[in-house]
Simulated assay, not measured.
Amino acid sequence: MAATILSGAAMTSLAHADVTLYPGNGPVPSINIYLRVDAGLRLDSNVDLSQYNSQTGKTTLVQAGGNDWGTSMFGVYGSSKLGDNITGIYKVESGFNATNGTFNSSTNSIFNRRAYVGLKNQQFGTIMLGKDLFIDNDVYNFDPMIQENMSTATLVYGRNWGGASDMVEYRSPALYGLHLGLMAAFDNGSGYYSTRVSNAYGVSGEYDIGDLSLYGIYDEVQDTHGHYTNLYSASKEWIAGATYNFQPVEFFAGIEGLSAPNGAQADGGTPIQNPGAPYAPGSAGSPYAAVYATSAYMGWLGAVWSVSQHVTLRGAWYHTSINDHGGNASLFTAGGEYSFTPNLLLYATAGEVVNSGHADFSADIYSPPAAPGHNQFAGFVGASIKF
């Protein structure tokens, strides 16, 4: 689904830097390329050393930042006319970290974001096969912080911005303001002799009524045994939200629920873990007990102000509550972008996460956290250039 609510001229202008190498010739596909590089600096306060390097005490970290505002990436896409009413499409896309040159993948694979082919019909919609972002990434459309590292993803440890390999995806055309998306991802079996083929699927919808847009998403991601054993990696998820464009300000609201019916330790569940903590609670070297949970809820409110052609300001509040002694947390964040040229913008974002109980969320999603129940302030600044 097209990201229809990109706010501010900075974001809009960056969307037009693609270069056409070959315009296509009927059945011969076109070739278009693009490249975006994002890098900057990041600060994280009150870092708990026991979860960072298995030492004692706390510290403040200042580090090179890559992908805090948006991932660096490059890609190639195009289309070919196969008939009067049908078009063939393709896209390959890779995300990478500009600070160290590595790809955004645990296996360092090159096309870690998208690699699909498809067929498009103006009347019936588009079907794609291959690899794409998982369907819950549609939350981007009603996230006031556009899924930066301080956004809807932060208090769910990135559960709502995953990828989907071996997938088939359908996107409908607009029908009286309604857009629908369907996706099923196939892992081709969890082992050599496995007969199970599907471990993730979901549906997404958007309904536009003038300046009001309503959104709904439901998906399920299973572990390798077909179970729901962790809130943030193998669970059921539903998301609902709305935006209202009251120019020059757009307002956002949303709620997300997560369920892991097999998440308890007695049911084979795995402990929840902050992705920025190498020494997570319950692991060797950590002084904190592991936390198992079976449900969580998150809600948010926010706004984006398009101040001028060059300036966009945004701010939001997010809150999550986790059962089974998981605690709760609130994230307060604000930032903005200044567009110098159609292809260059500077950005700055700051926020504080307020943890309570056993919660140990980071203010910046992949940064080392504070100790459970303690607050953390973080901020990042940088530049994003699209060629």
Rank of each mutant, 00 (worst) to 15 (best):
S306H: 03
P369E: 07
R159W: 09
Q247A: 12
V203L: 11
Y52M: 00
M1K: 14
G95Q: 04
R36T: 13
T270K: 12
P275I: 10
V117D: 05
D223H: 04
N137L: 07
N323T: 10
D138L: 04
Y244K: 05
L82F: 12
I135K: 00
S79F: 12
V249R: 00
L14Y: 07
S283Q: 13
D324T: 13
Y218F: 04
G315T: 15
A289M: 03
L344C: 09
D324P: 02
E237I: 10
T152S: 15
D267Q: 13
P369N: 09
V249W: 02
D132V: 08
I239E: 02
M298Q: 14
G205I: 05
G276H: 05
V197I: 05
A185F: 00
S172P: 01
I5D: 15
V37M: 09
T312P: 00
Q123K: 15
T71S: 14
R113N: 03
I385K: 11
S356Y: 03
D143C: 07
N375W: 04
A371H: 09
G210E: 09
Y207V: 06
T99C: 02
T102P: 06
A277W: 01
G282P: 01
F251Q: 01
A164Q: 00
V19L: 15
A64N: 15
D166S: 15
E206K: 11
W317F: 08
R113W: 01
S204D: 12
A200E: 12
Y192N: 13
G210H: 06
T56A: 12
R314N: 12
G276M: 00
G57D: 04
I209A: 11
Y22V: 05
H16S: 15
G351Y: 03
H225V: 03
Y116D: 03
A115F: 09
Y215M: 02
I33G: 01
S198D: 00
I255N: 11
P278C: 06
E93A: 06
H310W: 08
S204T: 14
I86V: 15
E337W: 09
A9K: 08
L345P: 05
V353D: 00
G78N: 08
V76D: 06
Y90F: 13
T341I: 01
T312F: 00
D166R: 12
L82M: 15
T107W: 07
L43E: 11
V117R: 11
T270R: 09
M1S: 14
S233D: 08
L35D: 15
P144W: 08
G125C: 07
L313P: 02
S7F: 07
A303C: 08
A174L: 10
L129D: 01
I86Q: 12
S7M: 09
H16L: 11
I86D: 12
D18C: 06
G357A: 03
G40V: 04
G285E: 06
Y297L: 04
L61T: 11
F186P: 01
F111Y: 11
E352W: 00
Y292S: 01
V168A: 11
M167I: 02
A378D: 09
L331G: 01
L155C: 08
